[in-house]
Design a protein around this nucleic acid. Structure first.
Length: 355
DNA sequence: AAGTCGGTCAACCGCCTGACA
DNA sequence: CTGTCAGGCGGTTGACCGACT
């Protein structure tokens, strides 16, 4: 029992539109509008097309002021910025780019932009490996984590509970956002092997992370976790799943693991975004929008955790709507588990020294 | 010249959401 | 409150085209 089709599939033409069909549709809509009913429209005009197909054709190709191809650097930046913050919500992204359609942007991202960023990463990786003789790739995850922990003490960019003031999007305020998790989402979405250095994105994005008073202790916790849990993503997930570690620790620990997956795209995007004031503002604003949305989900999770054995010192019930906790995005275990590509998890496990 | 391969992009599919009866 | 329906959306497909062998 499927859903009833929106039109009679047998009597509907499919495939590319002919110039005659385009002309019919365009002239009718220009004269009469859509009439608020796309389904009935093709019959009115005498087109053997599905109403949805007409709508798509009009929106993507026939309506005035549509631009195809020739994406500018500025547009690249905006697309990347928004993809980092809100993901593949192409209609929202398209709304920020006059004359662009969601379909165009989606195609552009999938065929060009993604590869452009991947290519950039490979070059950087090659350059870096030349510089250090490829030693970095040989390091096991434990030493990597320790190295990162050392760096974290200098740049404590993983506070347990970053707190940002809520402000309206698209303001001229400094983009004091904290988007490691959305960036991580991007990395996970894109899959593949990432580089190991996180700092460039922080520099590139000009991020300002509040230095949590407990950041040092959380680093120590992570080091302890390494001993107890091992250094695989699976270990992290199992730990959370079985409540063997406290929530704050597992959160941090997962963050560290994913951080270990690197940041080639984020570095590239960071460079793009930081090169452009508008993109920065856009990203700052859209991130707030994004985090605001994520909070709903995460509050549910955190609420559930707080009432079970995995909650610890954080009192999630006191969460104020005026505060945002971006790091909690990564604490969404289900989200991490579902979005983590198999390849990603496998490669993490295959590190020499991983237990 | 013919075959193969990979990239691009228009169009389709199916799910979700909101309006409305 | 519930069911239906159209609109909207993101993911996917497949035709087309140019580069390469």
């Amino acid at each position: 029992m499927g859903r009833a089709p929106c039109c009679d599939k047998a009597n509907v033409k499919k495939g590319p539109w002919s110039p005659e069909e385009d002309t019919k549709l365009k002239s009718y809509i220009e004269q009469h509008g859509t009439g608020g009913n796309w389904i009935a429209l093709p019959q009115k005009i005498g087109l053997k097309r599905c109403g949805k197909s007409c709508r798509l054709r009009w929106l993507n190709y026939l309506r005035p002021n549509i631009r195809h191809g020739g994406f500018s650097e500025e547009e690249d930046n905006i697309i990347c910025s928004l993809y980092v913050s809100i993901g593949s919500r192409w209609s929202v992204i398209a709304a920020q780019l006059p004359g662009r359609t969601d379909n165009d942007i989606k195609n552009y991202w999938n065929t060009r932009l993604k590869k452009k960023l991947l290519g950039k990463h490979r070059k950087e990786l090659q350059a870096r490996n030349k510089g250090n003789g490829g030693i970095l790739k040989q390091e096991n995850s434990s030493s990597l984590l320790l190295q990162q922990n050392s760096a974290q003490q200098l740049h404590p960019c993983w506070p347990q509970i970053p707190v940002l003031p809520l402000s309206s999007p698209y303001t001229n305020q400094s983009p004091s956002f904290n988007d490691q998790d959305s960036i991580r989402k991007l990395l996970i979405k894109l899959g593949g092997r990432f580089s190991d250095d996180y700092q460039p994105i922080l520099d590139g994005l000009n991020l300002q992370f509040p230095h949590g008073s407990n950041s040092l202790s959380s680093t120590q916790q992570i080091q302890e976790e390494q001993v107890h849990v091992g250094s695989s993503a699976l270990g992290c997930m199992n730990s959370i799943g079985h409540n063997q570690v406290q929530f704050g620790q597992s959160n941090e620990y997962c963050a560290e693991l994913v951080q270990g997956q690197g940041s080639f795209i984020t570095t590239a995007i960071g460079e793009m975004v930081s090169s452009n004031d508008y993109s920065r503002r856009l990203l700052g604003g859209s991130l707030e929008f994004f985090y605001g949305e994520e909070m709903i989900t995460d509050n549910k999770i955190m609420g559930a955790c707080a009432s079970s054995s995995c909650g610890q010192s954080t009192n999630w019930g006191e969460t104020s709507s005026s505060l945002m906790y971006p790091s909690l995005v990564a604490s969404n275990y289900e989200g991490v588990r579902q979005e983590m590509p198999r390849e990603c998890a496998f490669q993490e496990l295959s590190y020499p020294g991983a237990q």
